[in-house]
């Protein structure tokens, strides 16, 4: 892809924006559709894998937030990652969270399976349902065989609820947070830090974007930047070979192409 000078100056502001450079001219963010970070909302995201030549759609997920007053909320996560032979990995979770800086999850239920369609039975014993709870400093995960306990020290979040939390962060005035990230729904990864990174101005197909970026570093995760738009919506997540792009808000869609060309410095 030939990068014109307009895009070049934009992506130069942060390494992670190179991952979406080829997307910008084809991408239209969804309408705001009454979105408020601490209210009720539903976001749908397209997942891209960054091949060296072209970024391709690899799945999708939806986050839905249900406010339960000022102190807590519930979130559902539905994710589909493409498999082979027409199969996908389907994951579904319902999470009870506090409305705090990290959207701290207190308890959740989650299931995963390989299937052709969401309503199909799991293929070849690949389905599993579990529940989890954090209590007295321990993450307890229960399935039909056993309950496991893993210690969690200090603040913690979850890779999905964190996507809600970054929409409520204050930008430059944020203090760096050291915390434990619960990977998927069951694996605590200590030694993470989340901090303000930078602001950026970009242009997409239907106009300008003003972004604020937050930066996560820590165990088991390739450095990740969360980009929030001027309406407070998490619009891009950029990490390693993966980009999530906001495709719809409250049922109103933008435009996410099937693929986009790689950035070439």
């Amino acid at each position: 892809m030939k990068i014109d000078s307009r895009i070049e100056s934009q992506v130069a502001q942060d390494f992670s924006l190179r991952k979406v450079a080829g997307l910008l001219e084809h991408y239209t963010p969804p309408p705001v559709a009454g979105f408020a970070p601490a209210g009720n909302w539903k976001h749908e995201y397209t997942m891209y894998l960054l091949d060296p030549q072209v970024s391709i759609k690899s799945g999708a997920f939806a986050l839905e937030r249900f406010s339960k007053g000022t102190q807590s909320f519930a979130m559902t996560v539905q994710m589909r990652a493409s498999g082979i032979s027409g199969f996908s990995l389907f994951q579904h979770a319902q999470i009870q969270c506090r409305t705090d800086t990290l959207a701290t999850p207190g308890s959740w239920i989650f299931d995963a399976k390989m299937a052709r369609r969401p309503g199909d039975k799991p293929y070849l014993l690949s389905g599993r349902h579990r529940s989890a709870k954090v209590s007295d400093g321990y993450l307890m995960i229960r399935d039909k065989l056993a309950t496991s306990r893993t210690m969690i020290h200090g603040p913690y979040s979850n890779e999905w609820t964190l996507l809600e939390a970054v929409q409520r962060l204050p930008g430059e005035s944020m203090k760096q947070i050291h915390y434990t990230l619960i990977d998927e729904y069951d694996t605590p990864q200590p030694d993470h830090s989340l901090a303000f990174r930078t602001r950026a101005k970009m242009s997409v197909a239907n106009g300008p974007l003003q972004l604020v970026g937050y930066y996560d570093l820590g165990r088991a995760v390739i450095p990740t930047v969360y980009w929030v738009d001027q309406h407070g919506r998490l619009i891009f997540v950029c990490t390693g070979l993966v980009v999530y792009a906001l495709a719809a808000t409250n049922g109103q869609s933008g435009i996410c192409p099937e693929r986009y060309p790689a950035y070439r410095a």
């Binding site: 990995l89 994951q91 690949s126 993966v242």
Partner: peptide, 24 residues
Amino acid sequence: TIPVNGPAFGIHADPQVSNSAAAF
């Protein structure tokens, strides 16, 4: 076969592998 796919990306395929293998 438990039908997971990458196509050549561990970041995409490995969660499918570990979830499916653990479930199996």
